[in-house]
């Protein structure tokens, strides 16, 4: 079997998918990044290799997400793309005719508006992380409920309480207040979902024309309470596609397919990288007052990439066979 590999290294989760040549998703893996992106990518690749038949041939690999450069270097990706493009590509192929994509991940949230199959506008959350998965995670942990149960409990709500969602810090104190007043847990959780949706629509979705079909993807789409809150706020039905949690990786694989068609044979290093020894480190360059933090990645003792400098002195110090971007 031949196909394409897509890797999405996000703040919270690392997702890997394998697409066959027809664009059908054959395998998908969802792992928690746990602050160790390289080790997680290696672990994921090892798992994927075990699950796939032995006659597998990777014709191209793509990386996306905030850790895309790292992942791209580690596996030798053909396409290294931002997550906005990756999500848009995946949704436009898996859900033909989609006009609005709501995406909420671990630490960022975005809205992508498509018209006639082409991205016409997008926005990403600014410095504020209120309304992203990490906050829900944290609140679930505080209330001692599994995050997987969050949506289910929120759906049991009968009278939703109003929670101030403008800021994650204040939302928490508001929740504590409501809980001490004696509101029920499902009502508070449903209130939190509505607050997050309100915040998302005000902040990220500000001024955007949200038209059906609306697709909701990213890890938070697993939360049925959030889906219901979106439907209530928008007055539209919100579609959660299968593989909603690995859409970024699907997009990366599709972009890899495109890149390979354009530039020829893949630079994928093979599943062997899951056993290689990668070391990363950083140092402060003292070349000028910018004091850039330069990151260095070594594979089996050999430096394969450096980045983080503004002037490009270190970036160019490692010879790279081809430019990725």
């Amino acid at each position: 079997m031949k196909g394409y590999l897509g890797i999405d290294v996000g703040s919270v989760s690392t997702n890997i998918v394998f697409l066959d040549e027809g664009g059908i998703i054959r395998e998908s893996i969802y792992l928690r990044t746990q602050g160790r992106p390289i080790a997680t990518v290696q672990k994921g690749l090892g798992k994927l290799k075990d699950r796939l038949p032995s006659n597998i041939k990777v014709r191209g690999a793509g990386a996306t997400g905030s850790g895309r450069n790292l992942a791209g270097i580690v596996v030798g990706a053909d396409a290294v793309k931002n997550e906005i493009t990756a999500h848009a590509v995946a949704a436009s192929i898996l859900v033909p005719g989609v006009q609005t994509i709501l995406e909420i991940g671990g630490q960022d949230s975005k809205i992508i508006v498509l018209r006639n199959g082409v991205v016409s506008d997008f926005a990403m959350n600014t410095v504020c992380a209120a309304g992203t998965g990490s906050f829900l995670d944290q609140q679930a942990a505080r209330l001692n409920i599994a995050i997987e149960k969050f949506g289910e409990i929120a759906l049991q709500s009968e009278a939703v309480v109003r929670i101030a969602g403008r800021c994650a810090v204040f939302a928490e104190s508001d929740m504590v207040h409501k809980q001490q007043m004696g509101c029920s847990l499902p009502d508070i959780l449903a209130g939190l979902c509505e607050a997050l949706v309100r915040n998302y629509l005000n902040n990220v979705g500000k001024g955007k024309d949200i038209l059906a079909p609306v697709v909701f993807q990213g890890g938070v789409a697993a939360n049925a309470g959030m889906v219901r809150a979106f439907e209530k706020a928008l007055g539209l039905s919100v579609l959660v596609p299968p593989y909603f949690d690995v859409m970024g990786a699907v997009g990366a694989a599709l972009l890899a397919r495109e890149a390979v068609a354009r530039k020829g044979p893949s630079s994928f290093k093979g599943f062997g990288v899951s056993e290689a020894c990668f070391k990363t480190g950083s140092f402060e360059c003292a070349g000028c007052a910018n004091l850039c933090e330069v990151v260095e990645i070594a594979e089996d003792g050999k430096v394969i990439a450096r980045w983080g400098d503004r002037c490009g002195k270190w970036l160019n110090s490692v010879h790279r066979e081809e430019k990725i971007s």
Partner: peptide, 19 residues
Amino acid sequence: GIMTRLEAFLDMVRWRNMA
């Protein structure tokens, strides 16, 4: 953050031009 947005923006422009 800036790079991600710029990159996505240029992709969007390219995509539109191609369409």
